[in-house]
Every structure is written in C-alpha cells, then in structure tokens.
Nucleic acid binder design. Structure first.
Lengths: 220, 220
DNA sequence: TATACATTCAATTGCTATCTTGAATGATAT
DNA sequence: ATATCATTCAAGATAGCAATTGAATGTATA
C-alpha cells in the first residue's frame, strides 16, 4: 500500500524547505543570487572546504533551487529561477516579523539601525535619474564586474577609507551590496557617517533590484 | 570570540526553514491556515499521536510560524500572521516549477489534470456575483462552519454521491477545499464529472481566498 | 479537596544530516 | 600519454531530529 499523493507532495515540499534550512546554504544562495558562480569561488568566499561546498550545492540542485552548467574544467551554479528569490525573501520576512531574536540581533550588531533608515528601490531609482545621489557598491570587484546598478561607484569595503576623495561631499551617498543583511553595506554606512558624509543604505541588494526589472549595468 | 551577525541571522532563518521542512508540519500548517485549531482536533485529523502533534506545534511556535492561546483546558494554535501563508505558497511555487517529481505526482495521482483546469479566484468571484455557479465546499462540516466562501454549499466528500440531487444540473459547479493540493476537491471533481456534471476546481483554497481580501461567510 | 481531562515534559530509541578525509572522475594542458 | 586541476564520490565520526512511551502540569468539574 503506497503513500497518499498529499503525503508525497508534502514530502517534496519539505525537502525543498530543508534545503534552505542550513546557514551555509542560505549564504551560498545569497551569492548565487548575484549571478553564476563556480564551486571554488563560492567555497573560498564563504570559507568552507571545497568538498563540503560541493555537497551543499548538489543538495540545492536536487531540491530544484540551483542549476549547474559545465564549462571546461569548471562547473558553474546559478539559481534555478526567480521564484527562488521570492521564497528567500518570504523566509526573511517571516523571520523578521515573528522572531524576537532576529530583531535583537539586528539592533545589537548593526547598532542604531533607526539612524540607518533604508532607501527603497523606487526612491533610489528616481534620485539616480535626477542625478541626486552617488550610488556606492561595496562588494568585491569581481562581483561588481558581473553586474551592478547603472553608474555605481565600486569601492570594496576594505578600500573605503583610502578612497574618500572620490566622493562629492555635497551629494548624498546610497550604499548597497548583496542583500538586505549583507554586512558590507551596514559597515560602509557606519564608516562614512563617522566621517561626516550623508549616506543611507539601499533596503536590499542587487538581486532584488534585478528581479524588480530595474536596469543593470555589466562590466562598465 | 562570537559568531558574526550574518551567521546569527542566517541561523535564525534556517531555523524557520527547517520548521516547515517536515511533511507533518506542513500538513498542520495547512489546517491552521483554515483558522484556529486545538491540539486534539489537529492530531485526530492528521492521524498523529497527541504528544507528537504537540511537539510539532511547539516547534512551529518557536519558529514564529504559529501562536497559541489558552482557553480553559484547551490550547488553540493559529498561524502567526499572513506572511506565513505567503511563505508556504512561495515554497509550493518553487517546488512546482523546479522539481519534476512534483509534476509527476500531480499527473499520476490526480489523473488527467489537463481536464481539471482550475478556476482563478478572480474569475470565480465574478461568476459568483453574477449567480452563474454553484460553489461547493467539500471539507468536513466543522471546518465549513468556521469560515467558507459566501453562499457555498457544504457537502463533505463522503456524502457527495448521496446528495447529488442538491445540484442544479444546468449550472456549473466550482469545488474547493483547504488548499491547492487538498485531495478532497480533486476527488470531488472526478466524482461529479463521472456523473455528467460540469465542474471545475478552484485553483487554491479558503486560506488564499481570505488572504486576498475576498469576503468570507461564517456559520451560515 | 479529589478527580478527570488536555496538553506538555522527559527519556529512550532509531534515523538523518553534517563535516572531514582521501580517493575517484572528467576535463584541459604539457 | 601523462600530468594537472576542478569537482565529485565514498566512508566514517558526531550531533541533532523524530516518534514513542509514561509521567507531570495545570485547569475544570464533582
């Protein structure tokens, strides 16, 4: 006697849920949301052993969250489609609204979040068109090269204090990086604020911008 | 040395994901999406031991997906808020689009799905207002009583063949139950089709109808 | 106060996931 | 062909999860 269709379906759904139910895999997904990535690049950036990274990636693939492509010796992974991004943002929203611990972490580590009011995508887009803001991308150069907001200035976080001269001090800066909880943009805002710049954070990151159908610039 | 805020946050997110990463908990959530339910009622309807059900419910509560309320001897659980429903539907959509197995199950068990083209909420609402359809709720009577589509006729699946006389044979029937994969409505459609009725399924169930802001009737 | 009842807790058992290590595959380059 | 490199596979140790059982909690009723 076989299991019911409902049980079989819920088994599959649960499988997908467990695939996103691991901190490392969530971090991998955040990187994949930026664009295609190789196993080696992911493992290095996240700080996992290569075999371990490979296993996580395969699990994501089996769960239908990622797909892979071979190019010579390298294997590149990317998100299966945009529904994955939607799923991740739903997950984030549920956790933000219903888990006190999340709020505590955000308030504790990203001190004074009230002062860090984020800019929405729509508002930023308008202000960009009007030439009112400097858009700052604080991700590493290679991630910037594979896609970024039009006209954005790329200064990776570790070079920030050495390159302050590149900013027009009269213009507001909007910083962004990989996503809503990418630490880089929080730290960039704090560092620039401390030096007197008027700066805010984009509410989320490049993947959401892209998913919203807003324009992207590659390799400029 | 403490863990990074990003790791802490992803740990919390992963926790929420694992909470929906179990078939029984998904089924519990489907029931909770209908409205508030007691532990005993849930355990009986799903077919789990009471202690086991209680533990699953507590896990859902710790993950911020459900909240509980005491009323005398009884403890009632319900979904924490509407974002939980959104999360579940994102999960479903990802699985539907990216996992071949899901498609196989749906096609295999709910044979001839092509003939079972579903009606959207919007279309059904229009046809209801115009008086063109009989809306059939095939859930058990108690679930019907705690909320259902306006003017719906409640015939639980096991009584269906005995109560065919209640249908106007000239009017189209639209059947619904708990959600997109609630087996009851699939079987109702099949049974009624076999008897010559013109009948379709609502694309999803009561929770989605409610979440879309469409009107609900209680205890009519 | 004593009893009944709904739910939760605690402890046990078996299972599944994770990470590590070292070997195996599959492709390119010498 | 052989060597080299990126990735995957396989096996083993550890830890966390899930279901079961029986006891404990807390509330209502007699």
């Amino acid at each position: 006697m076989s299991i019911s269709p409902k049980q079989a379906l819920y088994g599959e759904f649960a499988n997908v849920a467990r695939a996103i139910g691991h901190p490392h895999r969530l971090e991998i997904l955040e990187h994949l949301a930026q664009g295609e990535r190789g196993v080696d690049a992911l493992s290095e950036r996240i700080g996992l052993a290569i075999a371990n990274t490979s296993q996580h990636l395969q699990r994501l693939r089996r769960a239908g969250l990622a797909v892979s492509r071979r190019d010579g010796k390298f294997i590149f992974y990317r998100l299966a489609d945009d529904t994955v991004l939607t799923l991740l943002s739903s997950l984030r929203r549920v956790a933000e609204r219903n888990i006190a611990e999340v709020d505590r972490i955000v308030r504790g580590y990203f001190a004074g979040r009230d002062n860090m009011e984020a800019v929405s995508r729509g508002e930023l887009f308008e202000r960009m068109r009007a030439g009112l803001v400097t858009v700052l991308d604080v991700r590493p150069a290679d991630e910037f090269a594979s896609g970024h907001l039009p006209g954005a200035l790329n200064i990776p976080l570790n070079e920030l204090t050495a390159r302050l001269a590149e900013f027009d001090p009269r213009q507001e800066i909007v910083a962004y990086c990989r996503g809503a909880y990418c630490v880089l943009s929080f730290e960039a805002v704090a560092a620039l604020r401390a030096r007197g710049f008027k700066v805010r954070r984009l509410e989320d990151g490049l993947p959401e911008w892209k998913a919203a159908g807003l324009p992207i610039e590659v390799n400029a």
